[in-house]
Design a protein around this nucleic acid. Structure first.
Lengths: 159, 159
DNA sequence: CAGAATCCTATGCGATACTG
DNA sequence: CAGTATCGCATAGGATTCTG
């Protein structure tokens, strides 16, 4: 009955995001879109995914407002797929995944595709989680307010 | 032959990250770990996932060095699952997904679980992608160097 | 409570062939 | 080249039962 594992109804934004993206293919399609891919064939060759899967994923991404379909720039009768503003807002997600991967799955000298600052040609700064007033935050410096407990009653959990 | 869709051999850090995480359940387990869950039952109730799936995912996360198994703090004979440093490095990924979800899948007044700065009790600052020298970067301000083209030959692609 | 062990079904996804 | 249409298998993952 459930089309796939669905998290949509959760009150957690992470769950809804995950649900909206759909699957890993979709995320890699978005990555490719950030990397400049626009055409069906570009995605297909880059990902090596079956064409029917790609078709389905593109459709879902478009329906989800992450990609937009525009007429091909070369005048052909085909489409191009471009990121919507909502899609572009996934930039930090992709960058975060990229940096995590760079840090943990490549040898120091192992070559890998690299996201660079176009202007200076240099790699990006590592993402930093910060408080509203600008302090760097580690995971332990944060807490999650569940929705059923709108605020911590005063004094955190009786640890 | 392929156990699941695998992206492991890619030279793209995003693909390797995605592959290492495994699936959405795993990511939500990590989210819960950041939120303070440690016990099997906590994850299970929070996620509503089948126990065999949870068992399998926990195992993979431990094998992948994202979670660690430690003896239960309450002296029982069970385990607790805690984030390794590598797991904690996923913090920006979770935060990025959270913020994307907050921005696009909730009405302005719709309640949702919220990650807050423990010290001030306030929501976090939005993640910002920055260059090495600190400039804010939009997607269009960046380029990806594929590994087969170690550097852009001088003058970007003939656009 | 924390798992392990089975069983079963829906479906993700790859492969291939067809169309315009 | 950019899809659409079919087929088929592997498996993710849900439900249930059993154990220390």
């Amino acid at each position: 009955m459930v089309r796939r594992t669905r998290f949509n109804d959760s009150d957690c934004p992470v769950a809804r995001s995950v649900d909206a993206i759909g699957d890993w293919w979709s995320l890699l399609i978005v990555r490719d879109a950030f990397d400049g891919s626009r055409r069906f064939g570009e995605f297909q060759r880059s990902l090596g995914v079956a064409k029917n899967i790609l078709t389905a994923r593109l459709r879902v991404l478009v329906a989800g407002g992450i990609l937009d379909v525009v007429p091909a720039a070369d005048g052909s009768s085909y489409h191009e797929y471009v990121l919507t503003p909502k899609g572009k807002d996934l930039f930090p997600v992709i960058v975060a995944l990229r940096q995590w991967g760079e840090g943990h799955f490549f040898e120091p000298d192992e070559p890998h595709s690299e996201l660079i600052d176009r202007r200076r040609g240099r790699p990006l700064r590592a993402l930093e989680v910060r408080s509203a007033d600008g302090r760097r935050l580690d995971p332990d410096d944060t807490v999650v307010n569940k929705v059923d407990q709108p605020r911590t009653p005063a004094g955190t959990r009786p640890e």
